[in-house]
Write a protein that binds this DNA or RNA. Structure first.
Lengths: 237, 237
DNA sequence: CGTATGATTGAAGGGTCTCAAAATAGGTGG
DNA sequence: CCACCTATTTTGAGACCCTTCAATCATACG
């Protein structure tokens, strides 16, 4: 099922069988993209939105001197550009990190879906606000944490999110990024990201190698990241 | 009219007279808060959302050591916690900066409003995504710009937003913040914010004194801020 | 086996922070 | 209207974190 991970661990249970079926059937096609492909270019009008079924996708903005800032990272079950439905065009770019599979939801179909199923409409809205909540936490991370806190927080968040969709235990998970990507997510240089990773490794907190994260001391990780998963709005609390 | 500034300059023209009237009548009361009052505490379940009619409001998150990070600043015409409608509880705090007037929209009324007026519903959704777009730009600002760029960008954004709701020409506007608040918005210390303000003043770019911003060289301001207003989704482009 | 890409390390410089003090502004009571 | 008190702004000096630039090492791939 294409949408089986949508809102998994995030109040998916608030959706009825009828609504889940309607959502599943609203996808008109599935597309596969290769690694490091641009899925959406900023400014372009879009007429469909994509649900990530498999793989990892990131959103980013470019500065004047070729410097790049990641503003979001998406895991399976996330809509990557549902905000493009009300916004019509995006203010940033979207690209795949590895080979990905996405389900396409035409905007006219979404319009009808929302009118026919108001509660589903509100949950779609809710899912875009989860992105906003993560944006806020990223603002906090960049504004208040040092380099190691930022990296630790990033790992903690992705681990928890993968756990919510059943793809990790929260400590062991794939993360197909280069160190330079991690740096672009954390607002630091690639060189310093490397030094931070060494520090975290030597303190036996977390290792990141070959696109795979292994958390060995999650208490310490959460502590230096000042991490609390409340902003992810998990179902249980 | 309470909602006369809602989406002003941001495709408000996509709303019909009927929809505008319905929105205006959905407010069940108006509340006045004093300066520096907490309007919403994170974690609390909320059952209404507030449209800012007059004054300035900020949203923020607190770190472990009493350090605070602003994640949003609101001007008249903004819903300050419409995201609380789908989210039910907030992940951050909201407080007034000066005396403010807000219009209250009970969530049950919003539910009905959206079912009766799907297009209005989509514009309400749209307005929460504008916040998300600003969040992303703040991430970029914190991740990629130095201290003076961050401060310049903050001034540029608020000026442009006040201009869109008819409260400024973009160069001259009230901004009731202390330098320490500005610092908390830009992820720097209050001491350094002071030095940055001196630098911007001495370069004849912008002055900030007594809660008032005066931009003297908007080209230079936008340049060092790498500012482009596209992410604010203005009506005209 | 050679080449390209990414990871790792070193050294030096710069931007921002911390700590501390002084100056200014705003508000209050005499 | 002045004197006082408090909050805020301003300035200085030193330390630290991170960046920059450069080189070396490891790894994957043709």
């Amino acid at each position: 099922m294409l949408s089986s991970r949508f809102l998994m661990g995030r109040h998916r249970e608030d959706l009825s069988e009828i609504e889940l079926t309607a959502l599943e059937q609203a996808a008109d096609s599935v597309t596969t993209y290769g690694a490091r492909e641009e899925l959406v270019h900023h400014g372009t009008e879009i007429n469909h939105s994509m649900l990530l079924v498999e793989g990892f996708v990131c959103r980013y903005m470019d500065g004047l001197e070729g410097d790049r800032q990641l503003v979001a990272l998406h895991v399976p079950g996330d809509f990557v550009d549902l905000h493009g439905f009300p916004l019509r065009r995006l203010d940033h770019d979207i690209a795949s990190l590895i080979e990905v599979k996405v389900a396409n939801y035409p905007h006219p179909v979404l319009s009808k879906l929302i009118i026919d199923h108001p509660n589903l409409g509100r949950m779609l809205w809710f899912s875009t606000l989860l992105d906003a909540a993560m944006h806020r936490e990223w603002i906090f991370r960049l504004g208040r944490l040092g380099a190691s806190g930022r990296v630790a927080h990033f790992f903690a968040e992705i681990g928890r999110r993968l756990q919510m969709v059943g793809l990790s235990d929260g400590c062991n998970f794939p993360l197909p990024l280069h160190q330079s990507d991690l740096a672009e997510a954390c607002g630091i240089t690639a060189v310093h990201a490397n030094r931070v990773l060494r520090e975290l490794r030597e303190r036996n907190i977390v290792t990141f190698k070959g696109g795979h994260v292994n958390v060995t001391d999650i208490r310490a990780l959460h502590s230096i990241a000042e991490f609390d998963d409340g902003y992810l709005y998990p179902s249980a609390h």
